[in-house]
Amino acid sequence: MTQSRDGTDRSAQRAFVWILVVVIVLAAALTGAWYYLANRLDVAVRAGIETAGGQGVAIACDNRSVFGYPFRLGLRCDAIHIDAPAGDFSAGGGALRTAAQIYQPNKVVAELDGPVIIDAERVPPLDIRWTLAQASMTFRTRGLDHFALLLENPVLALSEPANSRRPLVQSDRLEVHARRRNDSLDLAVTDRGVRVFGPTLVALPAFDTSVDLTVEGAADWLDGRRDGTTLGEALAGKTGVLRSLRLDLGGASAGSAEVSGPFRFADDHTLSGAFDIVVSDPQAIAALVAAVAPEAASIAGSLASGVAFAGTTENGRTTIRITVADGQAMLGVIPLGTLPPLH
Protein backbone atom coordinates (compact mmCIF):
# COMPACT_ATOMS: atom_id res chain seq x y z
CA MET A 1 0.00 0.00 0.00
CA THR A 2 2.84 2.38 0.95
CA GLN A 3 4.81 1.56 -2.21
CA SER A 4 1.75 2.18 -4.36
CA ARG A 5 1.11 5.52 -2.66
CA ASP A 6 4.79 6.52 -3.05
CA GLY A 7 4.64 5.62 -6.74
CA THR A 8 1.50 7.73 -7.18
CA ASP A 9 3.13 10.68 -5.42
CA ARG A 10 6.25 10.43 -7.59
CA SER A 11 4.10 10.29 -10.75
CA ALA A 12 2.21 13.38 -9.61
CA GLN A 13 5.48 15.17 -8.89
CA ARG A 14 6.85 14.28 -12.33
CA ALA A 15 3.64 15.47 -13.98
CA PHE A 16 3.82 18.73 -12.05
CA VAL A 17 7.47 19.21 -13.05
CA TRP A 18 6.62 18.62 -16.72
CA ILE A 19 3.72 21.03 -16.53
CA LEU A 20 6.00 23.61 -14.93
CA VAL A 21 8.63 23.05 -17.65
CA VAL A 22 6.00 23.48 -20.39
CA VAL A 23 4.71 26.68 -18.76
CA ILE A 24 8.24 28.09 -18.50
CA VAL A 25 9.01 27.18 -22.12
CA LEU A 26 5.75 28.74 -23.35
CA ALA A 27 6.31 31.87 -21.27
CA ALA A 28 9.85 32.17 -22.62
CA ALA A 29 8.60 31.67 -26.19
CA LEU A 30 5.84 34.26 -25.69
CA THR A 31 8.29 36.72 -24.19
CA GLY A 32 10.75 36.21 -27.03
CA ALA A 33 8.02 36.55 -29.64
CA TRP A 34 6.65 39.71 -28.00
CA TYR A 35 10.01 41.45 -27.86
CA TYR A 36 10.78 40.38 -31.42
CA LEU A 37 7.47 41.79 -32.67
CA ALA A 38 7.91 44.92 -30.54
CA ASN A 39 11.28 45.53 -32.15
CA ARG A 40 9.82 44.93 -35.62
CA LEU A 41 7.03 47.41 -34.89
CA ASP A 42 9.43 50.06 -33.65
CA VAL A 43 11.69 49.55 -36.68
CA ALA A 44 8.71 49.72 -39.06
CA VAL A 45 7.41 52.94 -37.49
CA ARG A 46 10.86 54.53 -37.58
CA ALA A 47 11.27 53.49 -41.24
CA GLY A 48 7.85 54.91 -42.09
CA ILE A 49 8.69 58.23 -40.45
CA GLU A 50 12.01 58.35 -42.32
CA THR A 51 10.32 57.50 -45.64
CA ALA A 52 7.74 60.24 -45.12
CA GLY A 53 10.57 62.66 -44.28
CA GLY A 54 12.26 61.80 -47.56
CA GLN A 55 9.04 62.75 -49.34
CA GLY A 56 8.87 66.12 -47.59
CA VAL A 57 6.42 65.15 -44.83
CA ALA A 58 7.73 65.48 -41.27
CA ILE A 59 6.02 63.20 -38.74
CA ALA A 60 6.81 63.42 -35.04
CA CYS A 61 5.69 60.93 -32.39
CA ASP A 62 6.83 62.42 -29.09
CA ASN A 63 8.28 59.95 -26.55
CA ARG A 64 7.43 56.98 -28.75
CA SER A 65 7.26 53.64 -26.93
CA VAL A 66 6.01 50.10 -27.51
CA PHE A 67 3.81 48.62 -24.78
CA GLY A 68 1.32 45.84 -23.99
CA TYR A 69 3.41 42.86 -22.84
CA PRO A 70 2.48 40.03 -22.76
CA PHE A 71 -0.81 39.75 -24.69
CA ARG A 72 -1.02 43.07 -26.54
CA LEU A 73 1.34 44.95 -28.80
CA GLY A 74 0.88 48.69 -29.04
CA LEU A 75 2.52 51.97 -29.90
CA ARG A 76 2.18 55.04 -27.71
CA CYS A 77 3.06 58.70 -28.34
CA ASP A 78 2.62 61.60 -25.94
CA ALA A 79 1.73 63.83 -28.90
CA ILE A 80 1.73 63.66 -32.70
CA HIS A 81 2.68 66.26 -35.31
CA ILE A 82 2.50 66.22 -39.11
CA ASP A 83 4.07 68.94 -41.23
CA ALA A 84 3.98 68.97 -45.05
CA PRO A 85 5.37 72.33 -46.18
CA ALA A 86 5.09 71.45 -49.89
CA GLY A 87 1.37 70.88 -49.49
CA ASP A 88 0.99 73.80 -47.08
CA PHE A 89 -0.45 71.49 -44.44
CA SER A 90 0.28 70.91 -40.77
CA ALA A 91 -1.57 69.18 -37.96
CA GLY A 92 -0.93 68.39 -34.33
CA GLY A 93 -2.78 66.27 -31.82
CA GLY A 94 -2.58 64.86 -28.32
CA ALA A 95 -1.55 61.44 -27.07
CA LEU A 96 -1.94 58.51 -29.46
CA ARG A 97 -2.35 54.91 -28.32
CA THR A 98 -2.59 51.95 -30.70
CA ALA A 99 -2.73 48.27 -29.81
CA ALA A 100 -3.34 44.81 -31.29
CA GLN A 101 -3.92 41.53 -29.50
CA ILE A 102 -0.88 39.28 -29.88
CA TYR A 103 -3.16 36.48 -31.16
CA GLN A 104 -4.91 38.82 -33.67
CA PRO A 105 -2.19 41.14 -34.94
CA ASN A 106 -4.14 42.12 -38.08
CA LYS A 107 -6.70 44.10 -36.05
CA VAL A 108 -5.46 47.38 -34.59
CA VAL A 109 -7.42 49.66 -32.27
CA ALA A 110 -6.42 53.25 -31.54
CA GLU A 111 -7.34 56.19 -29.35
CA LEU A 112 -6.34 59.80 -29.86
CA ASP A 113 -6.59 62.63 -27.36
CA GLY A 114 -7.60 66.08 -28.55
CA PRO A 115 -7.50 68.74 -29.53
CA VAL A 116 -6.26 68.42 -33.10
CA ILE A 117 -5.20 71.69 -34.71
CA ILE A 118 -5.14 71.74 -38.52
CA ASP A 119 -3.58 74.47 -40.64
CA ALA A 120 -4.08 73.93 -44.36
CA GLU A 121 -4.07 75.89 -47.57
CA ARG A 122 -7.26 77.75 -48.51
CA VAL A 123 -8.97 77.09 -45.16
CA PRO A 124 -8.70 78.92 -41.84
CA PRO A 125 -6.94 77.13 -38.96
CA LEU A 126 -9.29 74.54 -37.46
CA ASP A 127 -9.60 73.22 -33.92
CA ILE A 128 -11.24 69.77 -33.52
CA ARG A 129 -12.12 68.42 -30.08
CA TRP A 130 -14.05 65.49 -28.62
CA THR A 131 -14.60 63.55 -25.42
CA LEU A 132 -13.67 60.19 -26.98
CA ALA A 133 -12.01 59.24 -30.28
CA GLN A 134 -11.59 55.55 -31.09
CA ALA A 135 -10.72 53.78 -34.32
CA SER A 136 -10.20 50.19 -35.41
CA MET A 137 -8.48 48.84 -38.52
CA THR A 138 -8.45 45.28 -39.86
CA PHE A 139 -5.80 44.29 -42.39
CA ARG A 140 -5.84 41.46 -44.92
CA THR A 141 -3.45 40.37 -47.63
CA ARG A 142 -4.63 43.19 -49.94
CA GLY A 143 -4.14 45.87 -47.30
CA LEU A 144 -6.66 47.64 -45.10
CA ASP A 145 -9.90 45.65 -45.18
CA HIS A 146 -12.12 47.47 -42.67
CA PHE A 147 -11.99 50.81 -40.89
CA ALA A 148 -14.24 52.15 -38.14
CA LEU A 149 -14.17 55.50 -36.34
CA LEU A 150 -16.17 56.74 -33.37
CA LEU A 151 -16.18 60.33 -32.10
CA GLU A 152 -18.18 61.27 -29.03
CA ASN A 153 -19.24 64.94 -28.84
CA PRO A 154 -17.03 66.20 -31.68
CA VAL A 155 -16.73 69.97 -32.12
CA LEU A 156 -15.21 71.64 -35.19
CA ALA A 157 -14.22 75.25 -34.56
CA LEU A 158 -12.06 78.02 -35.91
CA SER A 159 -8.85 78.04 -33.87
CA GLU A 160 -8.22 81.76 -34.23
CA PRO A 161 -8.40 83.89 -32.29
CA ALA A 162 -7.11 81.37 -29.73
CA ASN A 163 -8.86 83.03 -26.80
CA SER A 164 -12.34 82.79 -28.37
CA ARG A 165 -12.87 79.60 -30.36
CA ARG A 166 -15.81 79.89 -32.71
CA PRO A 167 -17.64 76.55 -33.15
CA LEU A 168 -18.75 75.79 -36.69
CA VAL A 169 -20.29 72.32 -36.29
CA GLN A 170 -20.78 69.98 -33.37
CA SER A 171 -22.72 66.78 -32.78
CA ASP A 172 -23.41 64.13 -30.17
CA ARG A 173 -21.94 61.07 -31.87
CA LEU A 174 -20.21 60.52 -35.22
CA GLU A 175 -19.57 57.03 -36.60
CA VAL A 176 -17.76 56.11 -39.82
CA HIS A 177 -17.47 52.57 -41.20
CA ALA A 178 -15.67 51.62 -44.42
CA ARG A 179 -14.93 48.16 -45.76
CA ARG A 180 -13.47 46.50 -48.83
CA ARG A 181 -15.88 44.27 -50.77
CA ASN A 182 -14.03 42.75 -53.70
CA ASP A 183 -13.00 45.86 -55.70
CA SER A 184 -15.77 48.04 -54.26
CA LEU A 185 -15.89 50.27 -51.21
CA ASP A 186 -18.83 50.16 -48.79
CA LEU A 187 -19.19 53.31 -46.71
CA ALA A 188 -21.61 54.09 -43.88
CA VAL A 189 -21.63 57.32 -41.86
CA THR A 190 -24.01 58.46 -39.13
CA ASP A 191 -23.94 61.79 -37.30
CA ARG A 192 -26.46 62.42 -34.53
CA GLY A 193 -27.49 65.66 -32.88
CA VAL A 194 -25.75 67.85 -35.45
CA ARG A 195 -25.74 71.60 -34.78
CA VAL A 196 -24.44 74.06 -37.36
CA PHE A 197 -23.41 77.53 -36.18
CA GLY A 198 -22.91 80.81 -38.00
CA PRO A 199 -24.28 84.34 -38.32
CA THR A 200 -27.09 83.25 -40.66
CA LEU A 201 -27.70 79.81 -39.14
CA VAL A 202 -28.61 80.59 -35.55
CA ALA A 203 -32.18 79.34 -35.99
CA LEU A 204 -31.21 75.95 -37.44
CA PRO A 205 -32.60 73.01 -35.46
CA ALA A 206 -30.44 70.04 -34.48
CA PHE A 207 -30.69 67.18 -36.94
CA ASP A 208 -29.47 63.63 -37.58
CA THR A 209 -27.89 62.61 -40.85
CA SER A 210 -26.60 59.36 -42.32
CA VAL A 211 -25.32 57.90 -45.57
CA ASP A 212 -24.92 54.29 -46.72
CA LEU A 213 -23.43 53.69 -50.17
CA THR A 214 -21.15 51.58 -52.36
CA VAL A 215 -18.63 53.01 -54.82
CA GLU A 216 -17.55 50.53 -57.48
CA GLY A 217 -13.81 50.16 -58.07
CA ALA A 218 -12.89 52.27 -55.04
CA ALA A 219 -11.64 49.60 -52.60
CA ASP A 220 -8.09 50.95 -52.78
CA TRP A 221 -9.25 54.22 -51.23
CA LEU A 222 -8.87 52.40 -47.91
CA ASP A 223 -5.11 52.31 -48.49
CA GLY A 224 -4.97 55.97 -49.47
CA ARG A 225 -4.69 55.20 -53.19
CA ARG A 226 -7.13 57.30 -55.18
CA ASP A 227 -7.08 59.56 -58.21
CA GLY A 228 -6.75 63.30 -57.67
CA THR A 229 -6.75 65.31 -54.50
CA THR A 230 -10.45 66.20 -54.21
CA LEU A 231 -13.58 64.09 -53.83
CA GLY A 232 -14.78 65.19 -57.27
CA GLU A 233 -11.54 64.02 -58.89
CA ALA A 234 -11.67 60.72 -57.00
CA LEU A 235 -15.29 60.03 -58.09
CA ALA A 236 -14.78 61.02 -61.74
CA GLY A 237 -15.83 58.09 -63.93
CA LYS A 238 -17.09 56.07 -60.94
CA THR A 239 -20.47 54.38 -60.51
CA GLY A 240 -22.20 53.15 -57.39
CA VAL A 241 -25.37 52.67 -55.40
CA LEU A 242 -26.73 55.04 -52.77
CA ARG A 243 -28.69 52.81 -50.41
CA SER A 244 -29.68 55.65 -48.13
CA LEU A 245 -28.91 59.33 -47.64
CA ARG A 246 -31.09 60.48 -44.76
CA LEU A 247 -31.74 63.79 -43.07
CA ASP A 248 -33.98 63.80 -39.99
CA LEU A 249 -35.06 66.82 -37.96
CA GLY A 250 -36.13 64.56 -35.09
CA GLY A 251 -39.47 63.53 -33.64
CA ALA A 252 -42.30 61.58 -35.21
CA SER A 253 -43.91 64.67 -36.79
CA ALA A 254 -40.74 66.55 -37.77
CA GLY A 255 -39.35 66.79 -41.28
CA SER A 256 -37.27 64.04 -42.80
CA ALA A 257 -35.93 63.10 -46.21
CA GLU A 258 -34.29 59.95 -47.54
CA VAL A 259 -32.69 59.48 -50.96
CA SER A 260 -31.69 56.20 -52.61
CA GLY A 261 -30.72 54.99 -56.06
CA PRO A 262 -27.86 54.21 -58.48
CA PHE A 263 -25.48 56.99 -59.52
CA ARG A 264 -22.65 57.78 -61.91
CA PHE A 265 -20.15 60.63 -62.03
CA ALA A 266 -18.84 61.72 -65.42
CA ASP A 267 -15.24 62.68 -66.08
CA ASP A 268 -16.24 66.34 -65.62
CA HIS A 269 -17.59 65.47 -62.12
CA THR A 270 -21.27 65.92 -63.06
CA LEU A 271 -23.84 63.54 -61.56
CA SER A 272 -26.30 61.23 -63.30
CA GLY A 273 -28.71 58.78 -61.70
CA ALA A 274 -32.28 57.83 -60.79
CA PHE A 275 -33.24 58.55 -57.21
CA ASP A 276 -36.26 57.79 -55.07
CA ILE A 277 -36.88 60.49 -52.45
CA VAL A 278 -39.13 59.92 -49.46
CA VAL A 279 -40.08 63.16 -47.70
CA SER A 280 -42.13 64.33 -44.75
CA ASP A 281 -42.62 68.08 -44.13
CA PRO A 282 -40.69 68.99 -47.31
CA GLN A 283 -40.70 72.75 -46.60
CA ALA A 284 -38.77 72.24 -43.35
CA ILE A 285 -36.23 70.05 -45.14
CA ALA A 286 -35.86 72.56 -47.99
CA ALA A 287 -35.21 75.38 -45.51
CA LEU A 288 -32.50 73.36 -43.78
CA VAL A 289 -30.85 72.37 -47.07
CA ALA A 290 -30.90 75.98 -48.27
CA ALA A 291 -29.24 77.17 -45.06
CA VAL A 292 -26.53 74.48 -44.98
CA ALA A 293 -25.92 74.17 -48.74
CA PRO A 294 -27.03 77.38 -50.52
CA GLU A 295 -25.92 76.02 -53.92
CA ALA A 296 -28.68 73.39 -53.67
CA ALA A 297 -31.37 75.80 -52.41
CA SER A 298 -33.19 76.22 -55.73
CA ILE A 299 -33.54 72.49 -56.34
CA ALA A 300 -34.60 71.88 -52.73
CA GLY A 301 -37.27 74.59 -53.05
CA SER A 302 -38.52 73.19 -56.35
CA LEU A 303 -38.75 69.72 -54.85
CA ALA A 304 -40.65 70.98 -51.83
CA SER A 305 -43.15 72.72 -54.10
CA GLY A 306 -43.59 69.75 -56.43
CA VAL A 307 -43.81 66.97 -53.87
CA ALA A 308 -47.53 67.38 -53.14
CA PHE A 309 -48.71 66.79 -56.71
CA ALA A 310 -45.90 64.69 -58.20
CA GLY A 311 -45.53 61.95 -55.60
CA THR A 312 -47.50 59.26 -53.86
CA THR A 313 -48.31 59.87 -50.19
CA GLU A 314 -48.77 57.26 -47.46
CA ASN A 315 -48.79 57.82 -43.69
CA GLY A 316 -47.66 61.42 -44.13
CA ARG A 317 -44.61 60.48 -46.23
CA THR A 318 -44.42 61.26 -49.94
CA THR A 319 -42.28 59.33 -52.44
CA ILE A 320 -41.10 60.88 -55.69
CA ARG A 321 -38.67 59.80 -58.44
CA ILE A 322 -35.97 62.27 -59.56
CA THR A 323 -33.78 61.62 -62.57
CA VAL A 324 -30.48 63.41 -63.07
CA ALA A 325 -28.68 63.46 -66.43
CA ASP A 326 -25.28 65.15 -66.50
CA GLY A 327 -26.28 67.39 -63.61
CA GLN A 328 -29.75 68.27 -64.95
CA ALA A 329 -32.42 67.25 -62.40
CA MET A 330 -35.94 66.38 -63.58
CA LEU A 331 -39.16 65.54 -61.77
CA GLY A 332 -40.89 63.61 -64.53
CA VAL A 333 -40.91 66.16 -67.37
CA ILE A 334 -40.50 69.12 -65.01
CA PRO A 335 -36.98 70.59 -64.86
CA LEU A 336 -35.81 71.26 -61.31
CA GLY A 337 -32.47 72.89 -61.96
CA THR A 338 -28.80 72.05 -62.36
CA LEU A 339 -26.59 70.37 -59.81
CA PRO A 340 -23.07 71.84 -59.91
CA PRO A 341 -20.14 69.49 -60.58
CA LEU A 342 -18.66 67.90 -57.47
CA HIS A 343 -15.43 69.64 -56.54
Rank of each mutant, 00 (worst) to 15 (best):
D127Q: 06
R97K: 14
L168E: 03
P105C: 01
V155R: 13
T131C: 05
A100Q: 02
Q101I: 00
R165A: 08
D145E: 15
T138A: 15
L112N: 05
V123E: 10
R179S: 14
P125F: 06
E160K: 13
A157V: 02
L150F: 14
H177D: 08
E175S: 09
N153R: 14
I118L: 15
A162W: 08
P167D: 09
L187M: 09
P115H: 03
S171K: 00
F139Y: 15
R140N: 15
R165E: 01
P115I: 02
L151T: 01
L126F: 09
R179Q: 14
S184H: 11
N163D: 14
T141E: 15
N153H: 12
L185P: 01
V108P: 02
Q134P: 00
W130H: 03
D127I: 00
L150Q: 07
R180I: 05
H177F: 11
L187Y: 10
R122Y: 11
L144C: 07
R142D: 15
A178V: 01
R166M: 12
A148F: 14
R140D: 15
A162I: 07
I128T: 04
L151F: 14
L187T: 06
G143A: 08
P161H: 13
A188P: 00
V116M: 13
S184M: 06
N153P: 00
M137Q: 11
S164V: 07
Q101F: 09
I117S: 10
D127P: 00
R180T: 04
D186N: 09
P167C: 12
G143N: 06
S136I: 01
L156P: 00
G114P: 04
T138M: 14
D113R: 12
R165S: 06
L144A: 08
R122G: 10
E111K: 13
L132A: 14
G143R: 07
A148R: 15
A148V: 06
L187H: 07
A178Q: 12
R140T: 07
N182P: 00
A178H: 03
R142L: 15
R173T: 03
L151V: 03
I102H: 03
R181N: 11
H177L: 13
E111Q: 13
E152D: 13
Q104G: 07
L126K: 09
A110T: 05
E152I: 05
P154H: 06
D172Q: 11
D186V: 04
I117H: 08
L174E: 01
R129F: 04
I118F: 13
S159Q: 03
H177A: 12
F139G: 00
P105W: 03
E160D: 10
I128A: 13
L158W: 10
V108A: 10
G143P: 01
L158Q: 08
I118M: 10
S171L: 09
